[in-house]
């Protein structure tokens, strides 16, 4: 569990950097650090599927942010002989994170059970008794609204939060527009 707390510390530091730094590119990189740390945590708690999704989303996010920043701001990209200190630090951090990540994922992949082993008893139970216990002919509905109803509540909460977030942001934007102009 030590590595979990280490990662949480790294995430906290990176989040602080992302929110406090004036350099947008640095903020994007720090945000990426938070996301990849989440991916490593997923691997540590043995959820490789979530980790894969998180990695894909995080790569897309960082690339997207970087593209937007590069298109909208001017950054001094003149190279003055040899690697800059910052660049080499970035590369070192990248290699360190990549190495850590690879070593962890190899361990997890080795521990993963064979496909179909052990037999999924729970799923069998759902398929077998879903109809008589819930009265719903659609076994998917029986699972998402009865056996795993709590998950669906979480899903609905995610949508609610997304709506509230969008509405809040849009209200701020339109207030600024109507107030400024």
């Amino acid at each position: 569990m030590v590595e979990l707390y280490l990662l949480l510390g790294v995430m906290l530091a990176a989040a602080l950097v992302a929110s406090e730094t004036k350099n947008l590119l640095a903020a994007a990189v720090a945000l990426g650090m938070v996301g990849f740390s989440v991916a490593i945590i997923f691997i540590l708690v043995q959820a490789p599927d979530l980790a894969i999704v998180q990695i894909v989303v995080e790569i897309l996010t960082v690339v997207f942010f970087t593209a937007v920043i590069l298109r909208t701001t001017e950054i001094d990209t003149t190279v003055t002989g040899g690697l800059k200190m910052e660049t080499s630090m970035f590369i070192a951090a990248f290699l360190a994170f990549g190495g850590l990540f690879l070593s962890l994922i190899i361990g997890v992949l080795r521990e993963l059970p064979q496909f179909g082993e052990p037999l999924m008893r729970v799923a069998q139970e759902y398929v077998q008794f879903g109809l008589e216990r819930t009265g719903a002919a659609n076994v998917v509905a029986a699972i998402i609204l009865d056996f795993r109803g709590y998950d669906t509540l979480g899903e609905a909460t995610v949508l609610f939060t997304a709506v509230v977030g969008v509405l809040t942001v849009m209200r701020m934007v339109s207030k600024k527009k109507s107030g400024g102009v």
Binding site: L131, E132, T134, G135, A136, A137, A141, A142, L145, D146, G149, T152
Partner: peptide, 15 residues
């Protein structure tokens, strides 16, 4: 009764 429209307890209401 299963397979009828009014069945499944709270599932249709939740839907």
């Amino acid at each position: 009764r299963p397979l009828e429209l009014v069945s499944g307890g709270i599932i249709p209401l939740a839907n």
